[in-house]
Structures are given as structure tokens and as C-alpha cells.
Simulated assay, not measured.
Amino acid sequence: MSLSTTTGRTSGSAADSRRHDLAAFLRSRRERISPEQVGLPATGRRRTPGLRREEVAQLAAVGVTWYTWLEQGRDIQVSAQVLDAVARSLMLDPSERAHLFALAQADDPSPVLDCPTVNPAFRAMLDQMGPLPAAVLNSRYDVLAHNRAYGHLVGDLEALPFEDRNLMWLAFTESRFHDVLVDVETEREGMVARFRSAMADHGAEPVWKTLVARLGQVSPDFAASWERHEVERPGSGIKRFQVPGVGLLSCDYTSLWLGPRPGARMVVYTPRCQETRARLELLAER
């Protein structure tokens, strides 16, 4: 089953605009680098700042004509391997590299796996919320930080590689989160719909496409859900967990956005009844 992340082919005008942006971006990066920064000898006065096109081509081991056409915004084929060489030659940082591959509509062969951090103030806030489970998530469902009570629900996230500390991944694979989530089928459908909605702003970013591809390979349920193209905006709601040795937890979850646009958010689970409150306190004693 194919997993598509776009709704159609890029129109001519959109492609022209993208190539123009790519050309302007490459020129701006080239002009900020001096020959000395990349180990080239200085050759007297230059009419323009930074490196020359032929110097970038030399550093990237590509043809001068081909690189010139790329900076002129011509409609040419661009391989991921050549883009990788250009990115290294222009000394692009991770954000600039991701932008380059997004403009070129190419998959990065060596995507940078960022490990976002949460400042100490938010971590202290999460800890103070115990025994209420709380975590900071981004719009891709990566768990960026969490308190001890949240770990009792989803499992030992610290034991996982960063790319697996993702609620979508945990919901569609064997995990404690999958096991304790009572309405798992409904919850997974909602998560996929919210993920797809958020991905509209991030479709060109390799890390988003990589997660979709990984999930599609390991979970036919995810592949089927993804192909339905359902979308939903994030918000608040109800979740139920059946925790071994504790019992049923029925919680309202509230999303507190950490910026002006939907992105990173703090999610807090509050008990919907006295039984759940008592069971959360019992869980906190473990």
C-alpha cells in the first residue's frame, strides 16, 4: 500500500516560485562565506562578497555549468547526493540544510535528528504537577519532557532512542502506552488525523516523512488509517487508561500551547472522578 504525503503534482507557477527561492537562498549562503573559511586562498579584490560559483562547484565536486543553472533557477534534476555536497560546501547549519532540501523537494539522505529540549522552568513545573501526569509534546507527537506520573502511563521513555519517544509510534507498536490505552483504536484514529493536519505545515521536512514511512512499514493499521486522509485539529478531551495493579483511570486532558501557533504544548491529565484521583495518588507512590 502506498503512503502519499502530497495531494497532487506541483503546479508550474509553484515550481517556478520554489526554484526562484532555491536560487536566492543558495546565492545568499554563498555570499556570506569567505574563501578562507573553506580553505581556499584569497585572490585579491572581488567584485562580489563571498565565494564564486565556480568555487562552490569545486568544493561540491559538481560541474560549474550545472551549479550556475541551479542558482539561476533553471528546471534541472537535482539529486539528494549533490544537494548533500552543496550543503556541506556552503557550511549550512541543520535548519538551513532542512530548508535547502525542502526547496529542492528532495529527501535528505542524512537527516539531522534534532533532540529538542525544554527549559528548566518547564521541567520544574512538570515535576510540581505530580501526581497528575503531564508532558510537553510537539505537533509531531514527540515527547519532549514529562514528569514521573506520565512515565507510569507511557512507560520508561528514557530507555528509548529519541526517535521512538513518540506517541504515534508507541500507539501503533508494542508498548506500555498501547497496552494501557483503553480506547486504543479510536485514539489512534484521532492521533493520525491530528498528525496529518499538523503535517500540512511540515510536509517538506524529512523527519515528518521519515516517521510516516517507519509507521507504514511496521503497522498495516497505520497505513490504512493514513490512506483515509482524515484531518482534525488538536485540542482537549478524555482519555482512559487501564493500569495493571491500579485499575481504570478516567482523565480529562488539557493542552496548554507554549507559543502563538499550535506546535509545542503541555498536556496535563486531571482525574474525572474521586476513584481516578485516588488511583493516581496510589500510582505516584510506586
Rank of each mutant, 00 (worst) to 15 (best):
A57H: 03
A60L: 08
V62R: 02
W66S: 13
Y67R: 03
T68C: 09
T68G: 10
T68E: 06
T68N: 07
I76G: 08
L83R: 00
A87K: 00
L90P: 02
L92W: 05
H99W: 05
L100H: 01
L100K: 02
F101T: 05
L103T: 04
D108H: 07
P109S: 10
V112A: 12
L113Q: 14
C115S: 12
V118P: 03
N119R: 14
P120G: 05
P120I: 10
F122R: 06
M125I: 14
Q128T: 13
Q128E: 10
G130P: 00
P131I: 10
P131L: 10
L132I: 04
P133W: 01
A134C: 08
R140C: 11
Y141E: 02
V143M: 07
V143N: 02
L153H: 04
V154I: 15
G155H: 05
L157T: 02
P161C: 07
L167I: 08
W169E: 00
L170D: 00
L170G: 01
A171Y: 01
F172Q: 05
T173P: 03
S175F: 09
R176L: 15
F177I: 08
H178Q: 14
L181Y: 03
L181D: 00
V184E: 04
T186F: 05
R188I: 08
G190Q: 13
A193R: 04
